[in-house]
């Protein structure tokens, strides 16, 4: 259960971080986001990654938790990248 939470958190975190970068916004949303919203996205992204690390460390102990959080960060980033590149392609087709 915690593992699923870690995967979702890291994937969502990286997706938010990506969406906060001005260069990727037109491809994702069709337009640039206001600066304020981009900043919120960035903070949300980092918070989710931090939360995932904290959850893992509390649940498994700090050493084991860090390794597991790092492993899920790689997997979550991969998932986010796959989802976003798909969204970009669909937007481009529209």
């Amino acid at each position: 259960m915690i593992d699923l939470a870690l995967l979702l958190l890291t994937a969502a975190g990286f997706a938010c971080l990506c969406a906060s970068v001005a260069r990727h916004q037109p491809a994702l949303f069709g337009r640039a986001l206001p600066k304020r919203r981009a900043r919120i996205l960035k903070r949300a992204g980092w918070s989710m990654l931090a939360l995932a690390t904290m959850l893992a460390c509390i649940n498994f102990g700090s050493g084991y938790g860090l390794v597991e959080a790092l492993g899920f960060a790689s997997l979550g980033a991969l998932a986010a990248m796959a989802l976003l590149s798909r969204a970009t392609r669909q937007n481009a087709r529209r």
Partner: peptide, 20 residues
């Protein structure tokens, strides 16, 4: 800026796989 990587885009794709 690793999100510049685009997966599954024609001839660049081996580079993308390597980078990702």
């Amino acid at each position: 800026d690793y999100f510049m990587l685009r997966l599954g885009k024609g001839q660049r794709s081996w580079l993308d796989v390597h980078n990702a």
